[in-house]
Write a protein that binds this DNA or RNA. Structure first.
Lengths: 228, 228
DNA sequence: CTACTCTGCCCGTACGTGCGGTCAGTTTTC
DNA sequence: GAAAACTGACCGCACGTACGGGCAGAGTAG
């Protein structure tokens, strides 16, 4: 039995969230391996021991970052899926949301994306991994629905989901939330190309891709700013 | 000894390449931060000091991996661009090649992709960065050519190139060269969806995407197996 | 009210380990 | 014999984390 104080009770103290947020930013900036307790503690004016007290180990801290992040993403996905019936609307929503994360929660999004690989092999990541799988399954199911409905041309839904996730998850390497490029424009361009690639007629695709259209508005309502 | 014909003239001899290949594999498996001299040396039955003797620092070793990798990729790109006139053929070739790397040089490809972010800020990576930029510029130019020729529907060529690179560079997180999924099939599916997304007519796109078609054959001839 | 105790948050330090890199010297190659 | 290849011991440091204790507030008894 390791630390009994960490997981169950959810003490949710003020300092705890602050630590997690700072740690997340450091992971986003430098990567997990180069992020360290000392820097986080120094920035918050506390001792390294305090961090250990709250989280136990570095691994668990990262796991908690991933789990919280994916938990929010899953909630949002279920919310906009409930509101958008069309397969092309739903795929567009996934794209709009995926891009939107980069500005809504830049640090957490980058931290998640650059350390996703740890979900596959690292122990202690089972929860986060199954959340990630559930999210991907939602996309795959949507792609299959669209095929059956005749909205998308037939193809390999799993491969297409990976193609789509690649474009979104790679954003952390080039997208700057404070830069000139606006996230809505990125999402719109990605949507247009992807939907056309899936065989969606141009007028239907353009409506779903439109940054001011119904899909983007729905996503904007569902995906609202989260605590830092 | 086991070495194959030690090159007489140059220090670029067998042992050095062996070190680089092993280091590359370790970076691919564990990431740059967790890859270390000790393990590489132990695996090759040599001293840590030998590695330092050949490469100086760890940073430089990674830089050399990236530079060699991008150098080969640039040569190949110029080769198939010279042989394929059509913009849709050229884009398809970039995709076929991008997928092909994953099986031709799995270790180097994964090492490159998972550490690409170091090209942007790390000092000593200027050469590799400019090579990467040159490669991306080739794709962007091809996309613009295709627009002007009326083969692709108008759009943001830079964003489209990032969308495309994302799909390919993300492969290291899910593609298994020894798995059941064949790389040609991945490339074909990616090509079909992407080319259709760019507005290429289905028959023209299908030909360029075909794993046994002229484009794939050209790429297979140009991108041949390289040493580690 | 005071006194006492319990408890959760927090601190500072010290330890062990792993790693990049140095160096003086030896072996191998041409 | 010079240069290159290689060795193994060693250094210094950064980092995760174990540990013992401090402190403040809540609850309780008198």
């Amino acid at each position: 039995m390791t630390g009994p104080a960490v997981a169950p009770g959810r003490p949710r103290g003020g300092r705890r969230d602050e630590i997690l947020a700072t740690f997340t930013r450091h992971v986003a900036d430098r990567g997990y391996d180069r992020a360290n307790f000392g820097d986080v503690a120094a920035e918050l004016g506390m001792s390294k021991g305090t961090i250990v007290h709250h989280f136990g180990t570095k691994d668990r801290m990262l796991a908690e970052v991933q789990e919280r992040y994916m938990g929010r993403r899953l909630d949002e996905a279920h919310a906009f899926l409930a509101r958008l019936p069309g397969p092309e609307q739903r795929i567009a929503a996934f794209v709009h949301a995926g891009v939107r994360y980069s500005t809504l929660e830049p640090a957490t999004t980058v931290a998640f994306q650059r350390e996703v690989v740890r979900l596959t092999d690292e122990p202690g990541m089972e929860t986060a991994r199954s959340q990630r799988d559930a999210y991907r399954d939602l996309v795959v199911a949507t792609l299959r629905d669209g095929e059956e409905a005749g909205v998308f041309v037939p193809g390999d839904a799993r491969l297409r989901s990976l193609q789509m996730f690649g474009s979104l998850h790679w954003m952390w390497t080039w997208f700057d939330p404070d830069g000139r490029l606006r996230p809505e424009d990125v999402a719109a361009e990605f949507c247009r190309t992807l939907l056309r690639g899936l065989g969606v007629p141009d007028d239907l695709g353009a409506l779903a891709a439109d940054p001011h259209g119904p899909v983007a508005r729905c996503v904007a309502e569902v995906c609202v700013s989260a605590p830092g």
